[in-house]
Structure formats: C-alpha cells, structure tokens
C-alpha cells in the first residue's frame, strides 16, 4: 500500500519542481509580507523586536494559505483527482501524501528561511531556533487545515477568498501557540510548553484531518 503513495509523493514533488515558479512566488510572498511590517511600523529595533514573532507567524500563515489554493485544483481540472479517488488505497492516505509533498516543497522553505527573517526583525540566538522549531511543528498543521479548505472550495465561486474565510479562524490556535513560544523565549521564560502543545496538536491533526480532507474531496467529486 505504501508504493502508490510513494509514487504520488514523488510525482507531486517533481511537478512542483518543474513549476519552480510556484515555490519562488510563495517564498517571495512570505518575504514581502514581512518586509511590509518595518515599512508600516517604523525602523526602531525595539518596536520591531516586539512584533517579530507575530509578524513572521502571520506571514507564514498567509503564505501557507495562498500556496494551498492550488493543492487540488490542477488534479481536479484534468481528472487526476477522480483517478486518485478510484485508486485502491484509501483516499485519506492519498490526501495525506499530497499534503506532505506540498509541505516539503512549499512549507519547508519557509521554515528554513524564517531564522534569517526573524534576525532581520531583531530576534537573536535561541529565539531564532525557537522560531524555526515552532514553524517546523506548526506549518504542517496549517497545511492540513488549509487542505480541508482547499478541498471544500474546489469548483466553488470565489474559491480563494472563501477559503480564507473558512480556514483562517481555524489557524488561530496554531498562531497563538507558535508566536507564543517565541514570545516566551524572548522573555527568557520556558517555551517548551508551547512547543509541546504544538506537537500535540500536530499529533492529533495528522491522523484526523486527512479523513476530513478525503470527505471533502468525495463531496466535491460526487
């Protein structure tokens, strides 16, 4: 049963690599949103440092949201999604493989880039490590939640904006915990609790949300 999923994972990653443009667009979006904060707020290092965790996390959440918009759209348009639904393995696993491929190619770059951006906003040392760790645990949850929204809004009027309305409220706990962890680290307080809770959320989301994604896909295909 793992082989088909491996095929899918490879295919999705290689498709995204063929369309490097998409990766670049999302990464550029992430960087630009963060650039907007100093421009809007002012260059004072102290101010920027205060908003740094929130700014990076909000930018990551938005970047995740816009990149997920097309997670299923291409496969849906050309009929591949039907074939995936008819393939022998459970659709939930297929969906999970797609989300993993998506996260590896579009989520992971954000995590890798985040320390540099955090540094530019005045975070230092351990704070940068906590920022990257919180994103590493948090962005997969964002991808899974966003995938539910992407599956629900396939072929629906006003897809992208509608998806934001559906999914952003569900991002709230992840955002609070992720930015919270960095905040704690900034005050030299224990940040482990936040990270553990993020990990717990991920552990719950990983088996459950693929079921919701599969359900949404089946409804769309019906």
């Amino acid at each position: 049963m793992m082989r088909p999923l491996w095929t899918l994972l490879q295919r999705d990653i290689s498709l995204i690599v063929t369309r490097r443009q998409d990766v670049l667009t999302v990464v550029a979006f992430f960087v630009i949103v963060i650039t907007l904060f100093p421009l809007a707020i002012g260059p004072e290092p102290e101010k920027l440092r205060t908003i740094a965790p929130g700014a990076v996390w909000v930018a990551a959440a938005l970047a995740s949201l816009i990149s997920l918009d097309r997670l299923f759209a291409d496969d849906w348009r050309d009929g591949t999604l039907e074939q995936l639904a008819l393939a022998p393995q459970p659709l939930a696993l297929t969906a999970l493989a797609k989300v993993i491929a998506h996260w590896l190619s579009l989520g992971l770059p954000l995590v890798i880039l985040s320390p540099a951006l955090g540094y530019s906003l005045g975070l230092q040392g351990i704070e940068l490590a906590v920022l990257a760790a919180s994103l590493l645990l948090g962005t997969p949850i964002l991808s899974l939640l966003g995938a539910v929204g992407a599956a629900m809004t396939l072929g629906v009027r006003g897809g992208g904006a509608l998806m934001a309305l559906l999914i952003l409220p569900l991002y709230v706990p992840v955002l609070i915990l992720g930015a919270g962890a960095v905040n704690e680290a900034m005050f030299a307080a224990p940040y482990q609790a936040h990270l553990s809770l993020l990990g717990a959320l991920l552990a719950v989301a990983l088996p459950l949300l693929p079921l919701a994604i599969a359900g949404a896909l089946r409804i769309t295909l019906d």
Partner: peptide
C-alpha cells in the same frame, strides 16, 4: 475496475 472519463487525467507537464 478502470474508469476513463471526460477529463482524461493526462498531466501536461509529464
């Protein structure tokens, strides 16, 4: 069982 529909699931890039 094999289904081939209107949309033929052929990827442009491949």
């Amino acid at each position: 069982m094999l289904y081939i529909g209107h949309r033929d699931a052929v990827k442009d890039e491949l």
